[in-house]
Design a protein around this nucleic acid. Sequence first.
DNA 1: TAGCCTATCTATAATAG
DNA 2: TCTATTATAGATAGGCT
Lengths: 191, 191
Amino acid sequence: MGRQKIEIKKIEKKSSLEVTFSKRRTGLFKKAGELCVLCGAEAAVIVFSPGRRAFVFGHPSADAVIDRFLHRETNSRALVPAGQVHGHVQRQYLEALGRLEVKKEQEETVGEMGRFRGSLEELRKKVADRVEEMTMMMMMESGPSSTAMVEYAAPPQEYNSSGGVLHGHDLAAHGVPHGFDFGFGFDEHLF
Amino acid sequence: MGRQKIEIKKIEKKSSLEVTFSKRRTGLFKKAGELCVLCGAEAAVIVFSPGRRAFVFGHPSADAVIDRFLHRETNSRALVPAGQVHGHVQRQYLEALGRLEVKKEQEETVGEMGRFRGSLEELRKKVADRVEEMTMMMMMESGPSSTAMVEYAAPPQEYNSSGGVLHGHDLAAHGVPHGFDFGFGFDEHLF
DNA sequence: TAGCCTATCTATAATAG
DNA sequence: TCTATTATAGATAGGCT
């Protein structure tokens, strides 16, 4: 879909890579949104730029979809292009459970409040400084009532909340991953 | 992009919806894969079909990307499509306030709370005033190696396991948002 | 049986460079 | 912005569970 055909291999020229990343990311999110609207599907797209910034799209929200995925509300069948999927979802679940146990005991209301306040304080400051540059993304015209697209980009240590608290990711809290099954391999039509 | 243009609204005819879902999902995964290869990005796409089956694409793996996202290895900046920003940010604000109210009663940090709330008020106003102009951006350099595409759809009971390493998604554990950061704005060269 | 997903072909809308 | 290339609507058929 462009003036000329390109090979699907890493773009070396940095400037081109940046432009392509931006355009394609936008297109990807748009496509995801359209899929949700057209088919009544729910989807989440997480993209980390080479610069390590995270861009997220979600309908009804990335967190909701991720939770659902992690909770394995569905069954599985797989399609794996390169062989390597085998995953770790379970381990993650188990580990998450372990962490939860610990965290729950360690974190007291007061502690949470302190961190919460600090985070918001920081947020407030950054927003004040940067708001000028922010712009809204208008992807799909009449998207579903709840579609969110966000770019996350906080220091590794800082826990980002945009979804976190508000939506509560107690993924590990309930249930157990179900139906993890890598059925068939996938392929050609992928690339 | 087809025999004829279509409106982006829910497809009513079930058979058409299914065909479209399948085709567009395939196209979405393909795009995600290309973005990863071309730009050295890492991405995960999770899609739940109306039939409730989960289809997942990930590079280097969906789990890896999700973990990274859940652990908030990066900072945040928001990008919300049309009109969703308000709801999102404000909801967070309101939720935060709500939590504050509760906490307030539970604890004795009234003084701090007051200031905190003031900060949130300020934040809320600024966000409300600027949201219309928000936009997103981002990018950068090099990337990874494997890609995985999977469709999950196994009976909840059949859980298979592996052990392991890993990250845990104990989001709820932290309970509180940290490092909430609307980072920077962004660069026109993004759009 | 019914429900849900995929394959193929072609004209054409959407878009990458 | 401009357009050659791509993605996909539509129609239909086949397949898996």
